[in-house]
Design a binder for these strands. Structure first.
Lengths: 220, 220
DNA sequence: TGACGGCTCCCCCGCGCGGGGGAGAAGGAA
DNA sequence: TTCCTTCTCCCCCGCGCGGGGGAGCCGTCA
């Protein structure tokens, strides 16, 4: 009996990616897809998947509400694996509180994705054990950084720009970044300018602030 | 090359149990044992284990301090798997903040124990990802890295310098800070220079990073 | 009374930063 | 193929930033 998975994401591309990765496994079967949280409940009722891989950010009904609904829709609800782009997504905490069983970063490697699906399917308590769940319950949330995070998403930095921003956020000067990345300082300047433009920042300090506020980098 | 594990627990019985469970695996080798956190560092230096299974509650030096010490003892520190009896152990949150990679309940089944060791060894980000780590930091209320916070305290900024740093951390230029504080730009420059000198920062970007890392300002 | 620290303001000076251009190479998509 | 993005590197130029000085005012404390 294969491990059945239901994919829920508003982006077809992401669904296709997940499907490709998961179907490559002989014992995993993607039994359905949904583009929005509102469409999930009937699908869960009919397909009874073992795992629901759910995006947190979706139109109409987001992953938090959908998680809530799914868990109350059937007597033996599927495991919920929350899919997100940013580690410090406020929505993740919300989903956790709603009863999600695990979460997964979109930039995870294929092996990690498969791994995560198997883990939640097994009901592995290492993912979101009660202790962590309690943490989330007591977490005050609503920090107002949603704007910053949205801005960071809209920015759509390229890989190299992200590299540069990470090093900027560690206090490195252009020449130091160039040395670290083994490229010329003029190249670094180009990337820095691109980052500033995309983030709407006037100087590197504002860019670094945006990086912190959006959770692109985290203190500690 | 087997997966090497170092056991740290004040109870010999627990160590024996873990050893029995882990040694039953052909690819896992228990390379050493310690009865207290204080004894861990030299062992880690000598044995270079892949994973340290560490009890949080121990005499002399507890698992939190020990985790801290281990992570600073060698350039490529082992993964720390925190072992605890209770799920809601406050010490677990402390260990998490100290940089532990995963945790394990003593009442876990043998298969789960082996599973957990393998997971942390693989560096699986599903255990304690940054989001959960941040959650723990939030929960503990004391934000910021301990070192960074200590540095900020040592800096002993004057009231005005603190004002200026706060505005710097909001991305304001010197002229804007001057306007906001109703003082001259030259005055602001004086304060900025003082802040940089006290924080050991080379430029305002590094100062702002220090402000975030120390919890002087918080995202959101 | 003097000494000290904090806040305020001023000067000069070097330089890294950021804007505005342009341009070639590589690789994927249409 | 052509088109586009990404990454790479180059030029010039203005300017804000930060360092190094100095200085006056006003409190507190010895």
């Amino acid at each position: 009996m294969p491990l059945t998975v239901l994919l829920v994401d508003d982006e077809p591309l992401v669904r296709a990616g997940l499907r490709a990765v998961l179907e490559a496994q002989p014992d995993i079967e993607v039994v359905g897809e949904a583009a929005d949280g509102a469409a999930v409940i009937p699908l869960v009722r009919r397909l009874r998947p073992d795992v629901v891989a759910m995006d947190v950010r979706m139109p109409l009904m987001d992953g938090i509400e959908a998680t809530h609904a799914v868990l109350r829709s059937v007597p033996e609800p599927p495991k919920i694996l929350v899919v997100t782009t940013f580690e410090n997504d406020e929505y993740v905490y919300g989903a956790l509180r709603a009863g999600a069983d695990g979460f997964l970063l979109k930039r995870a490697r294929p092996a990690e994705i498969v791994h995560a699906v198997r883990l939640v399917a097994e009901g592995d308590s290492l993912l979101f054990p009660a202790a962590v769940r309690r943490l989330a319950a007591e977490y005050g949330k609503d920090s107002g950084t949603t704007e910053a995070r949205a801005a960071m998403e809209r920015a759509a930095l390229t890989g190299r720009e992200a590299d540069v921003l990470r090093l900027m956020a560690r206090g490195l000067a252009n020449a130091e970044i160039a040395e670290r990345l083994m490229i010329g300082t003029e190249t670094v300047k180009s990337h820095v300018s691109a980052v500033l433009a995309k983030l709407g920042a006037r100087d590197r300090t504002q860019a670094v602030i945006a990086a912190y506020e959006s959770g692109f980098v985290s203190p500690g």
